[in-house]
Simulated scan of single mutants.
Amino acid sequence: MVAYIKTVDAYNATQPNSEMLDAIRQYNHSIINSLNSIRPLSGLRVLDVGASPHGYALEKSLALGVLDYVGIGLDISEDLAIKTKTGHGRLTYMNAESLSFNDNEFDAIVTMSTFEHIGNLGIALSEFHRVLRREGVALISFEPIWTCSYGHHLHHLGKISKLVPDWAHLLWSKNEMMEYLNSCWPQGAPLSVHEACEWIYEDNVLNRKGIKEIQKTLYDCPMQVEWIAPLLDEVRNEEQLIAAVKKTGLSRDELMTKGLSVLLYKH
């Protein structure tokens, strides 16, 4: 386990975006700690849906004494397996909407920054219910929701993301967005205006589901909702917010909800 953690340290240190990777690693650790405070994980089997391919949640889970950690995702290109004195951990490619596990196989499910990407959330939640044991828990935390100010999901691009006005992806058509970005797009940007607009409006990596649809899907799923806590956005452009309220019919509070933290139980 010590050797594995050193490989993760070394990988992060050699990457040009190492600061962002370190922040993602800490976020993964904090969510696993939160799950552990809800349901002590020592000796349990844990499924991580949308797992970091760098093993950030894997290392933390095994450090907490998880018996069996399985991390799945569509961006895991190579399977990985490690063994400690108290447990096993592995990463593997798998779709959340079609889990290749037996019924009642896991004690807990965790998913971080993934629900904004899953196409059919209802099917995925049914799969969670199927593979969880009775009294199992699912902790879900994700952002940004499509209907928040930066739901276009360019936030990892820093200054490029800030070129897109708040809620512009809801207020403008693709052509309007392209026309605007062409007027201010910097030379040497990591992607072109065309690529950015394809990502925002058409790429199937985003599910583009709004806050109301996601909340309804959660309450309609076969598991019991213990709580749904909104993750609130910071202060945004008031003029853009008023325009988004008029255009979408959503309330100010709904448009200022950037994500959700959710706890589900299988009773």
Rank of each mutant, 00 (worst) to 15 (best):
D203T: 02
Q215H: 01
N175C: 13
T217D: 11
V193I: 03
V205G: 11
D166E: 03
A189P: 02
G210E: 06
K209Y: 00
I200W: 10
I214K: 05
E176K: 01
K212V: 13
S183K: 04
L206I: 13
L218C: 05
H194P: 00
W172H: 04
D203V: 07
M223D: 07
K174N: 07
S192F: 13
G188D: 11
G188S: 12
W199G: 05
E198P: 07
E198T: 11
W185G: 00
M178F: 02
V225M: 15
D203W: 13
K212P: 00
L170K: 07
K209I: 06
I211W: 08
S192E: 14
W167V: 03
P190E: 01
E176F: 01
V193L: 08
P186H: 05
A189H: 09
P186C: 04
S192I: 10
D203I: 06
E176L: 00
K216Q: 10
W227D: 10
R208F: 10
S183I: 02
E198W: 12
D166H: 02
E226G: 14
L181N: 06
P190C: 00
W199I: 13
L170F: 01
Y201I: 13
K174W: 03
A189W: 04
I214V: 14
V225T: 15
Q187T: 08
S173C: 08
G210R: 01
E213C: 05
E226M: 14
P190Y: 01
A196N: 05
P190A: 00
D203F: 06
C184A: 02
A168V: 10
K209Q: 11
C197G: 13
I214W: 04
Q215T: 06
Y180A: 09
G210A: 09
A168D: 09
W172D: 04
W172K: 09
M223R: 04
K209A: 05
Y201A: 12
P222L: 13
I214G: 08
Y219Q: 09
C221I: 07
G210I: 06
Q224F: 02
C197E: 15
D203E: 14
Y219L: 12
N204E: 04
E179R: 15
M177W: 00
D203H: 14
E213S: 11
Y180L: 09
S173R: 08
N204T: 07
W227V: 06
P190D: 03
L191Q: 13
V225E: 15
W172F: 08
S183P: 01
N182T: 05
C184P: 00
S173N: 01
N204M: 03
P190M: 01
L181I: 06
S192T: 15
K209M: 08
N182I: 06
H169E: 04
Q215R: 04
E198D: 15
S192K: 14
W199A: 11
D166T: 01
D220I: 00
W199V: 09
